[in-house]
């Protein structure tokens, strides 16, 4: 129990003293995760919208696959990305293994299905109410997808936050593909793993505290968005 209290005290001190090492890690975490969320959004939202508005053979299968990919074990994703980007792998020439780039790639693979699935659900609901109007106005497929993405932006923001929440706390994949290299690929979660194994609970708890703080901030934002959604059906 002493470890916990001592650790908490040291962690708080580190946070309050704006410890350079700590903030470097936090900043890198945010950079990697936000990049991953942004890239995943660019893939997931059009895909979700497309699945919502198109009727093609195999659509149900595609949706089922997308939904089951939500449960991809991060460690397995890490392993696969590792193999693909290792020197002998097909993308080995790019020499991206153990760089923040592969960490972003792994996170994109992990969170894209979640974000696409939420987007598909939200956009599908909106399409059900807009469909007749869009057909009547002879909107093109592209215009249809665009108006749905724009008007479902609140739900899509939630999808982004869900992806962010999953990615920022993820450790299995990025530890494998990033390698937890000091000042280069070390992020919050991999640092916690390292400090814990070294027995430096102070730093580990400081990092863990910040991770929790990020999660709380995230939840406050989600709560704010969803509650304003409830009181008003929509707003600008």
């Amino acid at each position: 129990m002493d470890d916990l209290w001592n650790g908490l005290a040291r962690g708080t001190a580190l946070v309050l003293s704006f410890d350079a090492y700590l903030y470097e890690i936090v900043l890198r975490s945010l950079k990697v995760t936000l990049s991953a969320v942004l890239i995943a959004a660019l893939i997931a939202f059009p895909v979700g919208a497309w699945l919502a508005v198109s009727r093609f053979r195999g659509r149900r299968t595609a949706i089922a696959i997308m939904n089951s990919l939500m449960g991809l074990p991060p460690v397995t994703v890490g392993l696969m990305v590792y193999i693909l980007f290792s020197r002998s792998g097909p993308f080995g020439v790019l020499e991206l293994l153990f760089t923040p780039a592969t960490m972003i790639i792994a996170q994109v693979i992990i969170i894209t299905p979640i974000m696409a699935s939420i987007a598909h659900q939200a956009i599908g609901d909106l399409y059900a109410s807009y469909r007749d109007l869009l057909v009547s106005l002879t909107a093109t497929r592209w215009q249809t997808v665009m108006v749905l993405i724009i008007d479902a932006r609140r739900a899509l923001l939630l999808a982004g936050l869900a992806g962010f929440g999953r990615a920022i706390g993820e450790v299995g994949a990025i530890l494998i593909v990033g390698g937890n290299i000091d000042h280069y690929t070390r992020v919050l979660t991999t640092a916690i793993v390292l400090e814990t194994s070294k027995g430096d609970f102070g730093l580990a708890l400081g990092l863990g505290g910040i991770l929790i703080l990020l999660a709380v901030i995230l939840n406050i934002i989600i709560h704010h968005i969803t509650s304003s959604e409830r009181t008003r059906t929509w707003s600008p």
Binding site: S129, Y130, L133, D151
Partner: peptide, 11 residues
């Protein structure tokens, strides 16, 4: 076309 139950964009 004018719909019986108005279909309006969330705008």
């Amino acid at each position: 076309f004018v719909f019986q139950v108005p279909i309006l964009l969330h705008r």
